[in-house]
Design a protein around this nucleic acid. Structure first.
Lengths: 225, 225
DNA sequence: TAGATTGTTAATCGATTAACAATC
DNA sequence: TAGATTGTTAATCGATTAACAATC
């Protein structure tokens, strides 16, 4: 079977799911979890759309990429759809995570329960600064980056999180790929140059604030010049 | 003058900049900062594109929304373009920030230097849990959420950051809007229901991991079922 | 002048959404 | 059966990008 690489465009492949749809799947999933908690067993595309903040046609189109999981005249079975979306997102198995960079952000992420709760258990946090190695952060002790390969192999780590300053991010990314990591979540404000087969998601907190700042300036141009 | 609201589509307005372009401006800005640090004074769209990980036509198109700041046959003056992009992003003035929610994530964000460094000084962190109020976090003491309005007015706070569990996020968002905040960065994994005039950016760390998990499952379907 | 590179147009591509037949 | 709602098609909309005249 042909295996899709991250970013590869094969829109006539029957298994192809557009990236914009993939990005919305976690939103739908969260809505379905909420419905389950409320004891609601069936949901229409209109209701799911209202919860997710999108329109109903988009929900139906997005879900149709996964299969025909709805029932005409009725809607979607919440439990079944939640299972299918979770499966599509590869959440039937845990994906262990390591964090590189034990500064403010890394220290926070290592203690962030949202990862563990959703099937992404943190296995270790690394740094290359001798003054940081050995420090205790909750249940973890900051490890020497030199031990990365060992931990990744031992704990079958699937995802590397980069929480270093931008200057070190590329070297860390290369090191992660070197030891076999294929998926990277990058918090450093820089663009990583990696093989197209490596999946990278970037989260840039300052960029988000800058986007808000842009719209604030537009809304009130005089007060902000 | 007609003032653009967040999300309002007025593509024939000569001042209109597509949101996709706005989202890329911080990336270009960071590249320009890097070029400045390297002492490079002129840059072509091709070089800027390579740094930003996009294509040159997109760079030129994006920058053309801001004005004609390049010189044919030469390129863009780095310093001048950096100034113009920064101005467009409303970065000529500081935008004070408050954080609501003093859990793991909020505690980390309050100490994250990336905010302060880029013109978004954190002014306070709030919680409504009596066991957290009064706790010291670096330079800050966790404040009672009841004092939100007072601080926002006194410090002319521009942006509210929500770092609460999803269950409290909507109430916190309503409280922020109530005291005059028009821009919100939401870390809670939920969709906020707010007036369209309020600019909201959502950062969902678990969603990002789920997207990576999706592509990992596609790359290796057998090992991850 | 010759070479380089922008700014912009127009073509292409992909995403969104309205509409409706299928069907529960 | 009548009403509801999906799944999918086709129309629309917007974003990307190739191409090139303008011009430094």
């Amino acid at each position: 079977m042909h295996k899709l690489r991250y970013g590869e465009i094969v829109s006539d492949d029957p298994e192809f799911i557009p990236e914009v749809t993939v990005i919305r799947l976690p939103v739908y999933r969260r809505c379905l979890v909420e419905l389950t908690e409320q004891g609601i067993t069936t949901v229409s595309s209109a209701r799911l759309a209202a919860m997710a903040g999108v329109n109903a046609a988009k929900v139906r189109k997005d879900l149709s990429y996964l299969g025909s999981y709805g029932t005409r005249g009725v809607g979607y079975d919440v439990e079944f759809l939640l299972f299918e979306v979770s499966r599509e997102l590869g959440m039937t198995t845990d994906r262990p995570v390591v964090i590189v960079g034990a500064g403010n952000l890394g220290s926070a992420l290592v203690g962030y329960s949202g990862f563990n709760d959703r099937g992404f258990p943190v296995r270790a946090i690394f740094d290359n600064d001798p003054t940081r190695i050995g420090i205790s952060l909750g249940d973890f002790e900051v490890m020497d980056l030199a031990l990365l390969g060992e931990v990744v192999e031992r704990d079958e780590v699937a995802i590397g999180v980069i929480a270093t300053p931008p200057g070190s991010a590329q070297a860390v990314a290369d090191a992660l790929v070197e030891v076999g990591i294929r998926s990277i979540l990058n918090f450093a404000p820089c663009i990583l140059d990696l093989d197209r087969s490596i999946a990278v998601r970037r989260v840039d907190l300052a960029s988000e604030l800058q986007v808000l700042s842009f719209y604030q300036r537009q809304a009130d141009p005089l007060g902000s010049q």
